[in-house]
């Protein structure tokens, strides 16, 4: 049994559209419990239909998140997946359906458009009005290219500067690397999650030093990743127990009001 005093919330989990997604989610939940994870934030099966899903596909993704959260309400926290390329009326309806009616806690943006695009403004303005969180995918495009779709940490910083009242979580700290941490450092409305990538040593210590533990949220990117490995990044980091506790759950609890 995993021995820890931490009450963990995983900020970054994806459901899977398959024959029995509820069964898959229950299997994930069983393993999560073994690691004292009390809640999973479900960000949608966001790449199921590629980078630029149409409105029907976005609805399918959100339908699954709604279904899973309804079935496992104590354990799952829903996020509304959106594509800024879709029509404003659809985006508005989807936010109404997921955030207002289903009490989802935030919006997830993936890789339809770069974060500096004006196409994000409509979504960000609603997020500002409703005071909800926006989670944005990010990666270092120096290596993977495709900046049309992918967003560098500097692009997230640009988004944060344009919408200083919106709380933004930049996903994937390891991909952001030290350069990414420095890029978002001045923007106090940006947090970073620890999800995904290999457990590269020193990553968490650097982020704690430059951002402060209060701006870091533990996330795994399960099922593409493993709870054990992603948790080890925090547990093994040379930071204080208090900082670990903040990253593993307290910060997310505070940010989402749960």
């Amino acid at each position: 049994m995993f021995e820890t005093n931490f009450n963990v919330i995983d900020f970054h989990v994806h459901p899977v559209i398959n024959k029995n997604p509820l069964k898959t989610m229950k299997e994930i939940m069983m393993v999560a419990r073994k690691f004292h994870i009390s809640k999973l934030c479900l960000l949608g099966d966001v790449l199921r239909f590629g980078y630029n899903p149409d409105e029907k596909q976005v609805s399918t993704i959100n339908n699954l998140t709604i279904k899973l959260v309804k079935n496992l309400p104590e354990f799952l926290v829903g996020f509304c997946f959106l594509n800024p390329e879709n029509s404003h009326s659809f985006i508005q309806e989807e936010i109404e359906r997921c955030i207002v009616k289903e009490n989802f806690k935030g919006i997830k943006l993936e890789a339809a458009v770069n974060a500096t695009s004006k196409k994000l403004d409509f979504v960000m303005e609603i997020a500002c009005r409703l005071n909800i969180l926006v989670v944005h995918h990010s990666w270092n495009t120096d290596i993977i290219n495709n900046r049309k779709h992918q967003s560098d940490p500097e692009d997230i910083a640009n988004l944060a500067s344009r919408f200083p009242q919106v709380k933004i979580v930049m996903a994937h700290i390891t991909a952001a690397s030290q350069r990414g941490v420095v890029a978002i450092q001045p923007y106090k409305n940006v947090w970073v999650d620890t999800s995904g990538a290999q457990p590269v040593s020193g990553t968490i210590e650097y982020a704690v030093k430059h951002l402060g533990a209060e701006r870091i949220l533990y996330g795994s990117d399960v099922p593409g990743r493993d709870f054990s490995v992603q948790l080890a990044k925090i547990i093994d980091a040379q930071i204080s127990e208090k900082e670990k506790r903040m990253i593993l759950g307290e910060n997310t609890r505070k940010l989402l009001g749960i």
Partner: peptide, 15 residues
């Protein structure tokens, strides 16, 4: 090690 946090592989096998 030392590229990765040593505990990552340990937790992977331990659990």
């Amino acid at each position: 090690t030392p590229f990765f946090y040593t505990k990552a592989a340990i937790m992977k096998i331990k659990f």
